[in-house]
């Protein structure tokens, strides 16, 4: 069992989400930085779809009732085990935590979201096949609060795998495929200048601030299905890139779809973003 000593501003349970229910209005949810979640799970011998914790910027502190193998990936942050910077006998991000041990993930020095995987996974009750907290609809376990407890599953005994962590930081260049509604805009506006990540960004979407996109076509769009990475443009012309907790339908036109939203999971407010058109 894990006891939450310091929940941080937003720490949630995340796995690979619950795709397949969009026709019922259920968002996909899941880890924003999916490669980092998979990596953390592989470090501790979990299957890729095991549930882990996703922190936001300021980390969190946890007490492990039983000895545990724990991996931390994603954002770059100091990790203390029982008050001391953790030794890392197995490589970069893997820690053996003794029974009663306290793991404290400090404020991220680069990136935003850390992923904390424990051998056996976070064993909260799944909802529609996933243990992810969906911040938009409220499905899944509640966000962590101080004092909350989390069950840990049985480790599979699989050998831990190592992998390469992605580099975090710097200006982002996002590959985008125009459509389905690029004909509603003067689309070149998207490529002409840089945008910055707005502090209003969250798990639903990365809000961008910069050159307002102008509509080539007036009128309202009847609600239609939207996907992960969709760049929706509301009336003010400032684009929003939809992330894991995005609504399943939207009434604003989508100018294009970002190929890989992972870098946005780790991009801090103020980060410069440019778009590059794909095929």
């Amino acid at each position: 069992m894990i006891t939450v000593l310091r929940a941080g501003p937003l720490t949630t349970v995340q796995d690979l989400g619950r795709p397949g229910y969009a026709h019922l209005g259920v968002p996909r949810s899941g880890a924003l930085d999916e490669p980092a979640l998979r990596l953390a799970n592989r470090f501790v011998g979990n299957p890729d779809d095991a549930a882990a914790l996703e922190t936001t910027l300021l980390g969190c502190a946890l007490r492990f009732a039983e000895a545990a193998l724990v991996a931390v990936t994603g954002a770059v942050a100091q990790v203390d085990v029982n008050g001391r910077p953790a030794e890392r006998p197995h490589g970069h991000q893997l820690f053996e935590v003794p029974a009663g041990g306290i793991v404290d993930i400090k404020r991220a020095s680069r990136g935003v979201r850390s992923y904390i995987a424990v051998a056996g996974g976070i064993a909260v009750e799944p909802v529609l096949g996933s243990r992810s907290t969906d911040t938009l609809s409220g499905l899944g376990p509640a966000r962590l609060t101080d004092g909350a407890t989390l069950p840990v599953g049985m480790p599979t005994g699989a050998a831990p795998l190592v992998g390469e962590a992605a580099r975090i930081g710097g200006e982002l260049v996002l590959g985008i495929r125009l459509g389905p509604r690029d004909d509603w805009f003067a689309a070149h506006g998207l490529f002409g200048s840089a945008y910055r990540i707005s502090p209003l960004s969250n798990r639903v979407g990365a809000r961008l601030a910069g050159n307002a996109l102008t509509r080539a076509k007036a009128g309202e769009l009847p609600s239609e299905g939207v996907t992960l990475g969709a760049v929706q443009v509301p009336a003010d012309g400032q684009p929003i890139v939809f992330l894991a907790d995005h609504p399943t339908t939207g009434g604003y036109p989508v100018i294009g779809v970002v190929d890989d939203v992972t870098p946005l999971a780790q991009a801090r407010p103020g980060t410069t973003v440019r778009f590059r058109e794909l095929d």
Partner: peptide, 14 residues
Amino acid sequence: TEIVPGARTVLIDG
């Protein structure tokens, strides 16, 4: 992965 009807469209994803 998804078949999502809308008001005037059907989205298929994956």
